[in-house]
Design a protein around this nucleic acid. Structure first.
Lengths: 252, 252
DNA sequence: ACCTGAACACCGTTCAAGT
DNA sequence: ACCTGAACACCGTTCAAGT
């Protein structure tokens, strides 16, 4: 009998008066995983302000109330997205006492780059202490490297905190400029800095002698350059506490 | 004729059927000054989230739309409040080349203290580049001091930027903890850190050997202590660029 | 157990209309 | 010129009711 060969039967058009099954995959059940993933997509597409409970729910084809079964609230959702992003940070396999400063530096640069690649997600880390698995993984590695480099435990412990504050703050600050340039184009960003520079130049030199004399220097340098400048200042300050031979790549 | 002696006439009760004049001083006209002042009061009383256009308007006995005649929007209002706060920062009169690092340090500490004294206002400085008169006054002084200390112009210019980023970021981070403790009492803050510490101790030592071995060091130190630790690391890194004799107070 | 519609108590900003 | 009521287009979270 032919009527049991389902595969071939489906090649024939379905009679239009039959109610089609509800769109496939829309009934894929909600989960924390799916919510975080959707939040991350929204973050990348529209920035952190685009990640609202309502928008995430909409994207998942449901109402905002449904999210609360899988996530305690907006804060937890953002924490989860942040830690997922931190998962992209690359770490060296083993601490190398000969190159401890370079290793600390590489992790810092990688973390900075990763956060910068995801809009203004860094704001989340400023708002609460990150305790997700990836945050811990990174901090653990930094601590191991500094200890291997001979840095005293108390200094190393506080330095992790100070370093991550610096990285996160710079990433956040820079991301706001990037948001500005995405919204108004490259041109808007240039205009913004142009206005500031013009304002600096217009200041009265008698009250702002140093400022007006150094507008050039104040405005120079790209994001990355300034970040690494500050990072190297911090690392130079740290170097005194550890093995001297680990400080092979001193800044200017 | 008695009916012209207004002063004495007002001692007699007004006939109750007369409409009384609208409450005195409520008709004090709106001004940017009054709006900023009210915003600052709200900031101190309820934190930055308490400063909404609607709340400020309410406090002034008017509707939110009325504020837009004196302030372009919320962002400008917050900028104005921030710069007013910066007015409290103390600056030395003259740059002293013998003590340049100490002077840079004092300004940094003062700015940090001032921001910490006004809830989470520091968030404003992370969101946009401060260009108010008081921000400029402080930056100008820092620049003068570093130049007097022999720091090259490019290093000094970038250092102002990095220093203020560090100060603002720490003040903001700390303010969020202070908000937490104000809302839930000293006890809530202790509980929060207690939870974190307990979580650190509960981590598997094989995967987090350094972390679990140094929970004590990771949790130690008050806000101010940690801030000054990082500040001194930065200043030690900076010291190499200027006059050696200005670095009289090196950190640990 | 999981999901949802509707409601609550808010936002910043705009605009036509009033004085 | 200055001020305002009402509206617009949003928020995060809660809760009773549904399946």
């Amino acid at each position: 009998m032919d009527r049991d060969r389902g595969a071939e039967a489906s090649a024939v058009p379905v009679p239009p008066w039959r109610t089609p099954p509800k769109a496939v995959n829309v009934r894929q059940p909600l989960s924390q995983e799916r919510i975080v993933q959707t939040g991350l997509q929204l973050l990348d597409a529209e920035g952190l302000d685009g990640v609202s409970m309502r928008r995430v729910a909409q994207e998942l084809g449901t109402g905002p109330a449904s999210l609360y079964a899988h996530v305690s609230g907006k804060e937890e959702l953002l924490d989860l997205i942040f830690d997922r992003v931190l998962g992209e940070v690359e770490l060296p396999d083993e601490p190398d006492p000969q190159r401890w400063i370079e290793q600390v530096r590489q992790i810092a640069v990688s973390a900075h780059r990763v956060m910068c690649a995801h809009a203004d997600i860094a704001r989340v880390a400023l708002a609460n202490v990150p305790v997700g698995p990836n945050a811990l993984r990174i901090a653990e590695k930094q601590l191991q490297i500094m200890r291997a480099g001979g840095v005293p435990a108390q200094v190393a412990a506080w330095m992790i905190d100070r370093l991550s504050l610096y990285i996160v703050a710079d990433a956040y600050e820079g991301s706001l400029l990037r948001v500005r340039s995405r919204e108004g184009g490259e041109q808007a960003l240039a205009e913004y800095f142009g206005r500031i520079e013009a304002y600096y130049r217009s200041l009265p030199p008698d009250r702002f002698p140093a400022f007006t004399a150094h507008v050039e220097e104040l405005m120079s340098g790209k994001d990355e350059e300034r970040f690494e400048f500050g990072l190297d200042i911090l690392l130079a300050g740290l170097a005194r506490f550890g093995r001297a031979d680990g400080a092979k790549s001193p800044p200017g």
